[in-house]
Amino acid sequence: MMNMNKLEDLLTSLNKKEDEKQKNAVLWALAIIGAVAAVAGIAYAVYRFFAPDYLEDFEEDFDDDFDDYFEDEDDDKDEK
């Protein structure tokens, strides 16, 4: 009877160690994924900070052309 209890305790402790190894593997995987995501986020933020905004210049040019077009139409109406 005493040997059976010791055997059960031994099996229980082995199962716990296997569970801890699996938990540690998952924890390491999540930590690596988190670190990669953090580095990628920082790299993107630095890129957006230093990259010029070409669209802003385009919108300004488009607005100027758009305004010129309507000013031309207003001039044509005044002449008639």
Rank of each mutant, 00 (worst) to 15 (best):
F62H: 06
K17L: 15
E73Y: 06
L27R: 10
V39P: 00
L7N: 12
I42R: 06
F62N: 07
Y69E: 14
T12R: 07
F58C: 05
D76L: 07
V36S: 09
A31V: 00
A31S: 13
M4R: 11
I32V: 11
K80Q: 01
A43T: 08
D63A: 13
L10D: 06
R48F: 04
E18R: 15
E79D: 14
I32D: 03
A37P: 01
F50I: 14
R48Y: 00
D74E: 15
D53S: 00
N24Y: 01
V26L: 15
Y54L: 10
K77G: 01
L11R: 12
D72L: 10
G41Y: 03
L11K: 13
N3Y: 13
K16D: 09
D61W: 05
E73T: 00
V26N: 12
S13H: 02
V36N: 07
L30H: 01
D57W: 04
D19W: 03
A29M: 12
E73D: 11
D57A: 07
N3I: 11
M1S: 13
E59P: 01
I42Q: 03
E71C: 00
L10P: 00
Y47L: 05
K23Y: 08
M1N: 13
F66K: 04
E59S: 06
D78L: 08
D57C: 01
Y69P: 00
I32Y: 00
T12H: 08
A51Y: 02
A45Q: 08
D67G: 03
E79Y: 02
K16I: 04
L27Y: 05
Y44A: 14
E8A: 13
A25K: 14
Y54R: 13
D75I: 05
F49D: 09
L10V: 08
E8G: 04
E56Y: 02
A45F: 11
K23R: 15
N15D: 11
D76T: 04
E56C: 01
L10Q: 10
F62M: 11
M2L: 15
K21C: 08
V36Y: 03
F70M: 07
V36M: 12
T12Q: 10
E73K: 06
K80R: 03
R48N: 00
N3F: 08
D53Y: 01
N15P: 03
D9A: 15
L30M: 11
A31F: 02
K21P: 01
L7Y: 09
